[in-house]
């Protein structure tokens, strides 16, 4: 990591709120997901994003990828930045795996590489030619998860944003051998610039990142050791849970006292 290198990705004073049901919010309540967040990603950075609420870190990854708009602030991409690895909303269930993968390559890859990369995706997903040329709506959930992951990894980006990758790729089939995409991911992400959400994959994030940021109440509360970030996020989550339990207990007792009054 070179602190003087030109940033690949910059987020300036970003804010984002969410209307509706995050945890226990009612539809007319607003939850702040990001509040005045600034972040600079330089070549070689491997940053884990730890937050007490999963939606905050996922939202930050989505905003950095540019698939979710910011309410305020600015996002600057100075290099090719991936979409959140492991997700892919652009896949159309009516199209075959081959057609979906080819479309992604047509957008992001050099035409000379299409065939080689299509073959690589098929091999990583352990699909037969027939399966690869079938609509992805016929794929099993785990196969689709592996397909999404393989497609994201096969394309060469300068910076990878890693969203929720799930765990279907860890084991495949009755023999319980790891999917080839598991080994490929380790190889591909070696030495690459990464940002990883820790949402439901804290161990995975700790394994791949060298530094971390802790997001508490939408703000970056700490930037440094990933383990400290994880501890801060967990501690704040416990506090939120306790507050929630207290609030629920209070509202239950209010309801009960209301009933008593009605009865009297």
């Amino acid at each position: 990591m070179n602190p003087y290198a030109e940033p690949l990705l910059e987020l300036k004073k970003a804010s984002k709120a969410y209307n509706g049901s995050v945890n226990t919010l009612s539809p007319d309540e607003t939850s702040v997901l990001l509040d005045d967040v600034s972040l600079v990603v330089r070549p070689g950075d491997r940053i884990g994003i730890f937050s007490s609420r999963n939606i905050e870190s996922i939202s930050l990854i989505n905003c950095l990828a540019g698939i979710s708009s910011l309410d305020k602030g600015e996002l600057i991409h100075r290099a090719s930045v991936s979409w959140p690895v492991g997700a892919n909303d652009a896949l159309d269930p009516k199209l075959t795996g081959h057609a979906n993968a080819r479309f992604a390559f047509e957008i992001y890859e050099d035409p000379a590489n299409y065939q080689e990369k299509l073959e690589l995706v098929r091999n990583l997903c352990e699909l037969t030619e027939d399966q690869f040329h079938s609509p992805i709506s016929t794929y099993l959930g785990r196969d689709l998860q592996i397909f999404r992951l393989a497609l994201s990894l096969v394309i060469d980006f300068d910076c990878y944003l890693i969203g929720r990758v799930g765990d279907g790729w860890k084991r495949k089939g009755q023999v319980r051998k790891p999917s080839p995409v598991f080994a490929y991911m380790k190889e591909k992400l070696e030495g690459k610039t990464l940002l990883i959400t820790s949402a439901k994959q804290a161990i995975f994030a700790l394994r791949y990142c060298t530094t971390g940021i802790a997001i508490i109440d939408g703000k970056i509360a700490y930037n440094g050791d990933p383990k400290v970030c994880l501890d801060m996020a967990l501690e704040h989550r416990q506090q939120l849970t306790l507050q929630q339990i207290e609030a629920n207990t209070a509202s239950d007792s209010d309801d009960l006292s209301g009933e008593d009054l009605d009865e009297s």
Binding site: D92, K94, L95, A99, F103, E106, I107, P111, P135
Partner: peptide
């Protein structure tokens, strides 16, 4: 031009699949 051609081909495949 590549992106436009790719979208056009995708749309053709989608219409054909319907």
């Amino acid at each position: 031009a590549r992106i436009v051609a790719a979208i056009s081909q995708r749309e053709l495949r989608l219409r054909a699949s319907k």
